[in-house]
Amino acid sequence: MVRLALVSQDAPGARERAVMLDGVRITFDLAGGGTYEAVDTVHLAVEEHEFVAIVGPTGCGKSTLLNAAAGLLKPSAGTVRIFGEPLSGLNRRAGYLFQQDSLMPWKTALENVAIGLEVAGTPAREARDRARDWLGRVGLGAFCERYPHMLSGGQRKRVGLAQVLIRDPKILFMDEPFGPLDAQTRLIMGDLLLSLWSTDKKAVMFVTHDLEEAIALADRVVIMSAGPAARIIGDYRIPLARPRDIAEIKLDPQFHEAHREIWHALKEEVLKGYRQGDRS
């Protein structure tokens, strides 16, 4: 019995497509001459209100793909469409939570969260009030005046989440955001992310190397092969009901079935990818 349907990219979506990567290829010029192909022709659509996790081995070009969708990087070939419009320059409708520490160390938690509104022209007072509110929502109401170095890794990620979400982006890019955190903190952050996401269900592209995390969080899990020339080798719908509790859901038989099926395919595809790599 196959529960998981492979997603066809060509199927006409009932909902609008928030992100559409159409034949995106990304190559880098190497310092010693020649080029390195990081991502090979990727077709990927993320619908509005859809939570898509992209899973692949570390260094497979997942982050590169995300940067292309965010407009931080121009693809060598193919187009990026955001709500149907070709992307040029930065993706202004997206928020991006980075893997590395990216808070401004010279600003307090409150200032870091408020800055996204302030630069958009919101009066400072109002921006601060809303930032305080957002810090409360991520559970850091008592830490407004702390500087990033006075916060733990998990707390910094919470500030980062508030910093991104306060601007109310229509699309959310997350690049292994909980990667550096310990296992317990990751669970808590996952639950926090889902509860915040459930209020307005932004389109999410969530990059991770952790298949369990991907299944627990996402509506759809996209598998990428190992680089160089990484491509998409699997695309699965996750039928688990929402709201989800990350710790609980890992005990759900459906979770195990999804995990087993994706892992099975992933393993075969990865091995196939290796064999192809050997031939060329």
Partner: peptide
């Protein structure tokens, strides 16, 4: 990372 983040914040 700080620079890219600041850009993405608009």
């Amino acid at each position: 990372a700080v620079l890219a983040n600041a850009r993405m914040l608009g």
